[in-house]
Write a protein that binds this DNA or RNA. Structure first.
Ligand code: NAD
Ligand code: NAD
Lengths: 211, 211
DNA sequence: CGTCATTTGTGATGACTTTCACGGAACAAC
DNA sequence: GTTGTTCCGTGAAAGTCATCACAAATGACG
């Protein structure tokens, strides 16, 4: 069973992180060969109807009366999420956050292979961290081409983020995860996703006060 | 003008991070005294109607024909978001990510005052980082009480996260930002918000492939 | 083969969220 | 005081998303 790009309907935004959670649940259930939407729901905290609906957006992967094949569904989810092959990722900005991300082992296991760090501070260039070398910014183009880098993580100060993103776009990067608290412009075809930790704290503060 | 808790309607989830963005926009517009929903919309990338609707959930803060007072609206947003007073925050798990968060200056400026770090690794206990001391876990109760800690950030391995959260709940923490990729149980009244960076990368991967 | 228990995929419904569009409030100008 | 302009607050409409509930598919069993 494979997922063939269909895209009849639009996919709700919140479906996508749910798919990631479903995938995690499958990884934890190695014993069984078949799993029901009800079981996936229990493991993830969603509802069975939600699970079935989310999966049905992409095709028919289950067997009525039986459930979903764990092995098949894992493969399908990897394909849908685009992590059935490794992404080569560049990390720009080797400061506090950049170093923490680089030192984290988890990403590689999940298909995200940080293959190079970049920084414009000469003191940081040349370092080896977890087997990854830190380069100066003007080597970006060379590496992007050689290693087919199409995803990048941006952990530079807000004031530098737009310039960095422009450089990334210029060397063909198509997907950017940005941690700088600033709204960035990218041309169509390039996807950017922002994580703003201060805003997440504020969201938590709101929840704690009001609900 | 002040925001007095009304809570007639339910607030859409996505309103809250938008309020944070509106607040940021106001910080950047020091010159003007009045600002229109249209201008806030331009600065933040939302629509004017969305801005007005979001603010109207909490009261009437604008003047027809004029706009919103920047000063007043800033105060109102601070109140709504619960960051008009400092939150004392504990950080549990002084590893890669915990250290990066501790070294970041931005949080303090935005009302989140990380006043103590905690770790169960004796080698990390006793360190001073950015003026914040790292304590052993059994000192948590003492500090939580003395410094009225009601918010915590959890950056321990997934396997330890539930135990840590249980301890935090036990000492009266009401709001938890969790970075461990695991679903955590908390009693009612305690708010937990999860940030799962691997899932954010997967979301980006999906976007880059499909849209 | 027929019956039964199970569980998917989906039309229908309802809930939630955003957008539209306008009445009316506010003020400037004359 | 009247007119004109601006722009908020909100009812109504449109759009999006989650849940309900069931027909149909599957296999176990006798
Ligand atoms: N550290 C955190 O916990 C944290 C939390 C929330 C948000 N952020 C955001 O993440 C970003 C990074 O934070 P940080 O604490 O790691 O900052 P940092 O100052 O420690 O690191 C930034 C790095 O980017 C490099 N840099 C600056 N300009 C550059 C350029 N033009 N090209 C390449 N490299 C450049 C610097 O040399 C430095 O190494 C910031 O935007 C910050 O607002 C960080
Ligand atoms: N570092 C990253 O970039 C990154 C990215 C994504 C997710 N995460 C998640 O964030 C968490 C932390 O990641 P990290 O890379 O900083 O890990 P790390 O191993 O560097 O740090 C974890 C710290 O927690 C401490 N710890 C362990 N058990 C504890 C307990 N019971 N009580 C108190 N302290 C305890 C350890 O001593 C260590 O200092 C993990 O759950 C990880 O999956 C991290």
């Amino acid at each position: 069973m494979t997922f063939t790009e269909q895209h009849e309907r639009r996919i709700p935004q919140r479906t996508i992180p749910r798919l990631s959670h479903y995938y995690r649940a499958l990884l934890e259930s190695r014993e069984v060969q078949l799993i029901s939407s009800e079981t996936i729901a229990e493991l993830t905290g969603y509802t069975a109807a939600q699970v079935r609906r989310d999966l049905a957006y992409f095709g028919q992967f289950g067997t009525p009366g039986r459930g979903y094949s764990v092995e098949d569904l894992k493969k399908v989810l990897l394909q849908i999420l685009g992590i059935d092959h490794q992404w080569n990722v560049a990390l720009i900005g080797m400061g506090n956050l950049g170093l923490a991300l680089l030192r984290y082992r988890g990403f590689h296991e999940q298909g995200f292979n940080i293959i190079a760090g970049f920084d414009n501070d000469p003191r940081k260039v040349g370092q080896m961290i977890e087997g990854v070398k830190v380069h100066q910014m003007d080597e970006l183009a060379e590496y992007a081409k050689r290693d087919q880098i199409r995803m990048a993580v941006v952990t530079v100060p807000a004031s530098a983020a737009q310039a960095v993103v422009d450089q990334l776009v210029g060397v063909g990067v198509k997907a950017i995860l940005n941690f700088a608290p600033v709204r960035l412009q990218v041309p169509g075809g390039v996807k950017i996703h922002n994580i703003d930790l201060a805003i997440e704290l504020e969201r938590l503060s709101f929840l704690a006060i009001h609900k």
